[in-house]
């Protein structure tokens, strides 16, 4: 028997049966040139091609300034590439859309809305019936661990709580792909660890496709199915590494796992080598 989940229960669906992997996002020979004010053209991304499979958790890892954010913005449709194209489910990306939900390092919450108002924003915009939107939003707020804070304004929340609201706000309109740009970069180490664990727990429920930008090697390995290593000037893909670690993962357990440690060390070594190779004599 096949049960079609209703919109409201979509995100609480327990474990999804694994479908054969199919491409959801295709990045095809994308390059990005920025005009710098003083100097000449700056090649931020050079000929990037990458395919992201449905329901995969993919991290883009690289040093600051290698074009990670730019690549994510191109997939989000916030920036259009100088050349090449990005596609979502075979259709060229021409602008932002509710099928791709961003979560930014800067949170970007609406400060004049309460936690509840922020989470309700997307469903309201999409014309979801008020009662249904309210029930969903309350459930999402609870899921990200903010029950009781519904009527707080962003000003009254800590950084970690703000990012939880931002995640709930984005999940509320059911994007097929989550685009996360160093979402935990502004948080202290303890809060970051807790949010990483919680994000994985939430992700396990429906396994949306996630494109996750980070410059932290262990964050990338801990969270991802696949790590895309980038190098700088110009921004290029260096290598794509499959992370073959069992799920569900918990950080405290994984830290002791020899394979996890191996991935982290290997990736860090590769970055060290490229730094040496790339540095001027």
């Amino acid at each position: 028997m096949k049960v079609v989940p209703s919109r409201s229960s979509e995100w609480v669906r327990p474990v999804t049966p694994q479908k054969p992997a199919s491409a959801i996002i295709e990045i095809d020979h994308v390059s990005q040139v920025f005009q710098t004010s003083s100097r000449r053209d700056h090649l931020a991304l050079s000929d990037i091609s990458l395919t992201i499979e449905e329901r995969a958790f993919v991290s883009i890892l690289g040093p600051s300034g290698c074009g990670k954010s730019t690549l994510l913005y191109i997939v989000g449709g916030f920036v259009s590439p100088t050349s090449g194209a990005a596609k979502m489910k075979g259709k060229a990306i021409t602008g932002p859309g509710p099928d791709r939900g961003p979560v930014f390092q800067e949170f970007a919450l609406f400060p004049w809305k309460t936690v509840f108002g922020n989470v309700m924003y997307g469903p309201r915009q999409q014309g979801v019936r008020t009662a249904e939107a309210e029930a969903q939003s309350l459930a999402l707020i609870e899921m990200v661990g903010l029950k009781g804070y519904e009527n707080f304004y962003p000003k009254e929340l800590s950084g970690g709580m703000k990012q939880r609201v931002a995640l709930a706000r984005t999940l509320a309109y059911h994007p097929e792909v989550l685009l996360m740009d160093e979402p935990f970069g502004a948080l202290d180490a303890h809060t970051r660890t807790r949010l990483q664990n919680d994000l994985l727990n939430i992700w396990e429920r429906d396994r949306k496709t996630v494109l996750f930008v980070t410059h932290s090697v262990d964050e990338a390995v801990f969270l991802s199915d696949k790590v895309v290593m980038m190098s700088k000037s110009p921004g290029r893909i260096r290598q794509v590494i499959d992370i073959d670690l069992p799920r569900p993962r918990r950080r405290s357990e994984l830290l002791l796992d020899a394979r996890y440690q191996e991935y982290v060390v290997d990736i860090e070594r590769m970055f060290d080598e490229s730094d040496e190779a790339g540095s001027p004599p």
Partner: peptide, 14 residues
């Protein structure tokens, strides 16, 4: 106005 706030709105379909 923070650009990312507008982007968040654009992603919601505004």
């Amino acid at each position: 106005v923070e650009e990312k706030m507008l982007w968040s709105g654009a992603a919601m379909g505004l």
